[in-house]
Structures are given as C-alpha cells and as structure tokens.
C-alpha cells in the first residue's frame, strides 16, 4: 500500500485549451470603482470550521473575517473589465495587447498569470 499516494488532480488543460476557455466573474463579488478608475474587489472567503469555532469562542464577530479586499492596479483593472463572460482568455489577451501595445506573448503570460491568481482566490471561474 502506498502511504504517500499522489493526489489525482483530474485531467489538466493544455495551454491551447485553456486559452479557449471563457473567464466568468464570481457573482458574490462586490466591485467598487475608485476615483483613480481602479477597481476594489471585496470577495467572501471560506473559513475552516475549527477556525470559525475558535473565533466564536473568543467572542469575536464572525462577519469580520468573512470577506477580503483586493485592489487592482490599472492593468489589472483593464483585464477585469475585459472579463464579460463572453470573451475567451485568448480574446482578452488580444485586446490587452492591442490596447497597451504589448507583444502577444508578453500579454499572454501576464494575463494568464493574473487570471490564475484570480482563480485561486475564487474571484473567477473558467467555462
């Protein structure tokens, strides 16, 4: 019996496949536009039950710990605004590259890295 069994992460998308996916925003996110035009996202976070119990025992309000904020810079805001549930990752990359005169490959790395980070925080999903 293998003690340290490798986790089965399911089928991984290839780079070509992931570029054809469409990013979709999480509907539970609150989006605020700052004076600078940048976006401030407030998103819920899931607290592990034992941490939630601990918080309750100390008598702290649980609501304080249930959301987090993320301030996007100008480039991040531009990508965020391009996510409309219809455009694919490739289309987002092309639009961003055109707008800021970036090399397509440079834009691809920047956008995919950013989307991966948003995905990890549960701010977007891919369909």
């Amino acid at each position: 019996m293998r003690v340290f069994k490798k986790k089965n992460r399911g089928a991984q998308l290839t780079r070509a496949e992931s570029l054809t996916c469409t990013p979709v925003k999480n509907t539970r996110i609150r989006e605020a536009r700052l004076e600078t035009g940048e976006v401030l996202l407030t998103y819920p976070i899931r607290i592990r039950p034992w941490i939630a119990n601990l918080i309750r025992r100390f008598g702290w309000g649980i609501n304080r710990f249930q959301s987090k904020k993320l301030h996007l810079d100008e480039l991040g805001t531009a990508v965020w605004d391009l996510i409309d549930g219809r455009r694919s990752v490739r289309q987002v990359i092309q639009r961003l590259a055109k707008r800021y005169q970036l090399h397509p490959r440079e834009a691809e790395v920047a956008v995919t890295r950013f989307l991966r980070e948003l995905g990890k925080r549960g701010l977007i999903g891919l369909k």
Binding site: L75, Y100, Q101, L102
Partner: peptide, 9 residues
C-alpha cells in the same frame, strides 16, 4: 519596460 503609459502615469 512596458507599457510606458502605466509605468510613467
């Protein structure tokens, strides 16, 4: 470096 419009804003 790029995009300059952001870096030099």
């Amino acid at each position: 470096w790029g995009p300059a419009s952001i870096l030099l804003c």
